[in-house]
Amino acid sequence: MSRIAARFAQLKAEGRGALMPFIEAYDPDPATSMALLRCLPGAGADLIELGVPFTDPMADGPTVQLAGQRALKAGGTLAGALAMVRDFRREDDETPIVLMGYLNPILSYGEERFCRDAGASGVDGLIVVDMPPEEADALAPHAATEGLDLIRLIAPTTDDARLPKVLAGTSGFIYYVAIAGITGTRSASRDVLAEAIPRVRRHTDLPIAIGFGVRTPQQAAEAVQIADGAVVASALIDTLAKSLDDKGRARPDTVRKVLDQVRELSEAVRGARVPA
């Protein structure tokens, strides 16, 4: 069983949902980013999304854009993100890691070589924001060979006619984009999500995580009451960004501040009663 499947099975047995924090690889520098990655499971991360910096993140709002720019300035690359996962795996063989990013760095690396290296580094899944199912044929077979889950985004605009097509090649879990919009901007209301998630459930047995606009412990708790996981990105990156000095460098308490927030989110997620 893959790490992702095993983790969701374990959480289901515990009767709770997953907290999935997102951090951008190399933001604001490789050492701080690595320290954060290492400490996330201890702070309550059930799965981790590791962002791969890209110059033109067209689905991201200002917070993640700036994180990407800091990461690129610090030398962040796809290869660097893989190296972080390899280091992480020396100590943790259970917490699933999903790489999230855009297609061009993968094309540049080479689809087949990338999937091989990602698998060997201990990556469990891929979210490629600008690769809809219609354009997945160059990457999907290699991902499958290496046992990498290809996790697809489903948006409020994905209608019932289109859902089966998007779900067809999806494995691991479903990433439900809560709002029609970019990251770190608006949030969906509980009522909207309570209607949206059952619609997706009718088409799939895969776990569903909610992302885009999940910022507070309360929102994370609501997300796991309705779905199976909550992705928190911009709220954590905002904390990281605020902790930096005026030259954009990490301060001694940068890692702690982000981890404290992860702990609060985790407590809320663990405290939210999820119907079995």
Binding site: A59, T158, V177
Partner: peptide, 20 residues
């Protein structure tokens, strides 16, 4: 039919935009 000229073109956008 896939919006391609040889290997070029296509529709590489986030899912939110695909329907529109």
């Amino acid at each position: 039919g896939r919006g391609r000229f040889g290997q070029f073109g296509g529709r590489y956008v986030a899912e939110t935009l695909m329907p529109v």
